[in-house]
Structures are given as C-alpha cells and as structure tokens.
C-alpha cells in the first residue's frame, strides 16, 4: 500500500491503522485546531484514526482491513463536504 505516496507494508488481516502504526508512531491527522492525533482505541470507538483511504475521507483505519494497493493518506484539518483535501 502507499501512505502519503510512500510504500508501506501490511500482513494479511492487519487493519490499516495497525499498518500505519507499524510504519511510524506519528500523527494520523490533525484536528480543526491543527493538533496532531493518532489512533487511540483501535476498536472503532474513538474515531481518532480517521484516514483518507482510496479517495474516501474520514474512514476509520482501525475498522478497515488492509488490502493490496490501497492508497492511504493522512488528513490535515477537517474534510470538506465533497471529501476533497484542503490543499
């Protein structure tokens, strides 16, 4: 898979959030107030691990099983209604 364009690896069955954490402990996203956040509960409760996965914004990385060729992006700030990034 790729994370922000760089290749990362996952084992079969890993969630996307686990794969991103295995790659680095850095933030998954920033909030509306630009504070960094990373996966917190890993069981679908806290919504801290929101990522853009295959073009879809605000996907819970901990509830999504990693698949070959996935395109994963960290989210900076809030998403717009059409799902576009802020840049």
């Amino acid at each position: 898979m790729t994370l922000d364009g760089a290749p990362i690896e996952a084992l079969p069955g890993d969630t996307v959030a686990a794969a991103v954490l295995a790659h680095s402990g850095k933030a998954f996203r920033t909030t509306a107030h630009e504070t960094p956040r990373a996966a917190y509960c890993m069981m679908g409760v806290c919504f801290e691990c929101l990522l853009e996965i295959d073009g879809k914004a605000n996907v819970q990385g901990c509830m999504t099983v990693a698949e070959d060729g996935m395109v994963v992006r960290r989210q900076n700030g809030l998403r717009r209604l059409n799902g576009d990034t802020d840049e």
Partner: peptide, 21 residues
C-alpha cells in the same frame, strides 16, 4: 491524553491480537 503515543491499554492488546505488534 490526546498526544500521539498515548493510547488506551486495550488498544495495545488489539494490536497484539490483530497484527502481532
């Protein structure tokens, strides 16, 4: 508690069970 690197303890257990991390 919102800093990256602070997690719930259960999260660590999920990572062991799910990904062997």
């Amino acid at each position: 508690w919102t800093l990256p690197g602070v997690m719930s303890a259960g999260a660590a257990q999920v990572l062991m069970k799910n990904a062997g991390l």
